[in-house]
Design a protein around this nucleic acid. Structure first.
Length: 654
RNA sequence: GCCGCGUUAGCUCAGCCGGUAGAGCACCUGAUUUGUAAUCAGGGGGUCGGGGGUUCGAAUCCCUCACGCGGCACCA
């Protein structure tokens, strides 16, 4: 250390590897990075000082533990995306100066920026914006942080015609430091940090899509134009991401639904599914499976009417709280509604006769077809529809039984998800919504009991405030699919309200009438959505017990036709869904076709197999073949195709 | 519901400045009897989403409705 500088104050900087270096007080991240290496100085985007991310040019006054952040680290990548949002806004202001800018946060895999343009953007504008962004990177403009007086900032942005920005600042809590970042002529309100110059942003971004978005996310506000982009540390990462998107597109259930001939939708029945034979087979396999699990789980099954007089919905509260989602029909001067939920129907069954406490808990399942008039913009394939079948059940029980029933349900749900190949599940707890039925006292009780039961069931919950059903709080079970997307499927809701409104009661040990508690619960949620999730999760390659066609017996030559017929018959007799392909085509053609149709198993038979009573097994996805004696092949396929939860020795499901 | 975009043969898509519709796959017919992801040849098929308008003339331009797609808002 040079003696001449010993008088100047120094700071001790601890690097990520634990080493300590001394720098003059007031040094910057940039200086530190430069002292470590040229490469680091070039790649540096920001610095973490005692865990807090800041700009490279911020002076460091005291001893600190630091880390130089580059695009290869998560915090650095996030910063790149944030920089890209600014680049985009900068580009837009240059190209379309009378556009107002609003907000531009980072999101998973990228960023977006919301604008209020004079003329709506078109997809062609995206290319222009992207080009301009690259140009601004090339200019390598310095990016400067500025601290502004709040009122001056408001005045400044207003004077520039940036009224949204001014509004944001005006809404900042008093006392908050207002910082802006300036690059060239562009200035934006921003907390930062940012890279020190535009040239440091890797040119690995792409503007992806144009969308509408409400100002401040409120549908009562004006609609802004949102530009979505993706950004990565390198062009290679960008390419990997774009490939991933393409792969995800191939799993799209709407595309696979058509390719696998499972279902279709058409404009005369928006939001309703036409199930084709293949798709309906899959639907029924799910239903059969679930029915077995429910029977084993102590449920009874019922069926309640589709079309019910308005009077019942008024009594249940649906007419008041759910009216806009209900389809109605008029006949005989009465108004009927298609049921949007099964619960009121279930209560009617409960109310028949006198129930004793001895009958509780009464677990009443229904594969109920519900209709809800969802907003047109919400419809999506078979995942979000207007007519759907819930794997619904209502458990009528006492307050004391809530905990045990919750635990029991969670176990069942875990088993079912596991059988379908989902192991990654998390749970959200939704409490009272603004629009609700029932008193606060009842809600207090319902929320407390559900929370307590969740605790007892060992669930770890994330809170989802204000998202409960109008009649009670709920647990929402969210599963993650093969490519990491989340789907809300299962639910458990505690309801003290409907039994009251619909006057359900049972006779307790004291000989008096008491109110039961209702637990609304579903595991799949709706068959339609769940099947959509299954298709995407497995990319169409359904496990054998679910596959609409489990086996195709394909011949190589006409000489094997009659033997192939016998093989198929033997499969069908053992409960397998098997088809015969004796067309006059080459085997390669047949293999390709059935592979594209995602049939899990092909049994190829030619002259050799016919003579030796054998089959050549070819599995989807592989190109290996195994020749087995017919009997052995049948035995192993039967095991493979067996539905989970089927007792030993039983054959595969319907 | 809101914003933007789209709708052409069963599917995927082409069709430039308005001149009267095309490809590949699929389908049908014939030939081929084939050994693990496309055998060859021929053929049929579209009031260009519905309605209205501009024009001598509209798949193409304009208006409108429906549906779809991407988001937002809403939600199983």
């Amino acid at each position: 250390m040079p003696a001449s500088q010993s008088a100047a104050p120094e700071v001790a900087i601890t690097l990520p590897d634990g080493s300590v270096r001394r720098y003059p007080a007031g040094t910057t991240g940039m200086a530190i990075a430069a002292s470590i290496g040229q490469r680091l100085a070039k790649d540096a985007l920001a610095i973490q000082v005692n865990g807090k991310l800041t700009d490279l040019d911020q002076p460091i006054a005291a001893d600190a533990t630091i880390a130089i952040v580059t695009a290869t680290q998560p915090a650095g990548l996030d910063l790149v995306r944030h920089d890209c949002a600014h680049l985009l806004a900068h580009a837009v202001k240059e190209l379309y100066p009378d556009t107002q800018i609003t907000i531009g946060p980072t999101i998973e895999d990228g960023f977006y920026y919301d604008f209020s343009p004079k003329e709506p953007f078109t997809p062609a504008d995206l290319a222009r914006m992207e080009e301009r962004m690259a140009l601004i990177v090339d200019r390598d403009l310095p990016v400067r942080r500025e601290v502004w007086d709040r009122d001056e900032a408001i005045h400044f942005f207003n004077s520039r015609g940036e009224h949204y920005k001014a509004e944001i600042i005006a809404d900042l809590p008093r006392g908050e430091i207002v910082t802006c970042y300036r690059q060239g002529d562009f200035i934006d309100l921003c907390r930062g940090p940012h890279a020190s110059s535009t040239g440091r942003v890797p040119k690995a971004f792409k503007l992806m899509k144009l969308a509408g978005a409400y100002w401040r996310g409120d549908s009562r506000n004006e609609m802004l134009q949102r530009v979505y982009g993706t950004a990565w540390a390198s062009e290679k990462d960008l390419k990997t991401y774009l490939t991933r998107l393409k792969e995800a597109e191939k799993r799209d259930h709407r595309r696979l639904g058509r390719e696998m001939d499972l279902f279709h939708v058409q404009e005369e029945a928006p939001g309703s599914v036409f199930w084709h034979p293949n798709g309906w087979t899959l639907f029924r396999a799910c239903e059969t499976y679930l029915r077995r699990r429910l029977e084993a789980g102590g449920y009874v099954e019922v069926k309640t009417p589709q079309l019910v007089d308005r009077a019942l919905w008024e009594q249940s509260g649906h007419w008041e709280k759910f009216r806009e989602h209900m389809f109605t029909a008029e006949a005989e001067e009465r108004i009927f509604a298609l049921k949007p939920m099964n619960c009121p129907g279930a209560v009617q069954i409960f109310k028949q006769g006198i129930k004793s406490y001895r009958e509780l808990p009464l677990r009443m399942a229904e594969f109920g077809a519900c209709h809800r008039n969802e907003p047109s913009g919400a419809l999506h394939g078979i995942m979000r529809v207007r007519a759907f079948t819930q794997d619904d059940a209502h458990i009528f029980c006492t307050e004391d039984q809530i905990t045990a029933e919750t635990i029991r349900f969670c176990e069942l749900l875990k088993t079912v998800y596991g059988d379908f190949g989902f192991t990654d599940v998390h749970v959200k707890f939704s409490d009272r919504p603004p629009v609700r039925a029932g008193s606060d006292a009842i809600w207090d009780k319902a929320e407390a009991s559900l929370q307590q039961a969740s605790l007892a069931a060992g669930l770890s919950l994330t809170l989802n405030p204000g998202e409960g059903a109008f009649y009670g709080p709920k647990l929402e079970f969210v599963l993650s699919d093969a490519i990491g997307r989340d789907w809300q499927c299962g639910t458990l809701q505690v309801d003290f309200v409907l039994p009251e409104r619909l006057d359900a009661n049972y006779v307790a040990e004291d000989g008096q009438k008491h109110r039961p508690v209702m637990l609304h619960r579903a595991i799949l949620g709706s068959f339609e959505r769940f099947i959509g999730v299954l298709i995407e999760h497995f990319a169409g390659r359904l496990p054998m017990w679910l596959a609409p066609v489990q086996v195709v017996v394909a011949t190589i030559t006409g000489e094997a036709d009659s033997y192939a017929g016998e093989v198929r018959k033997a499969l069908v007799e053992r409960g397998l869904r098997a088809r015969l392909d004796i067309r006059n085509e080459k085997i390669g053609y047949k293999v390709r076709e059935h592979s594209l149709a995602k049939v899990p198993v092909m049994l190829v038979v030619g002259k050799r197999e016919a003579e030796t009573q054998a089959v050549a097994i070819r599995r989807l996805g592989g190109n290996a073949q195994e020749t087995l004696a017919l009997g052995d092949a049948l035995a192993s396929l039967v095991v493979e195709a067996t539905m989970p939860g089927t007792s030993e020795g039983a054959t595969a499901g319907a």
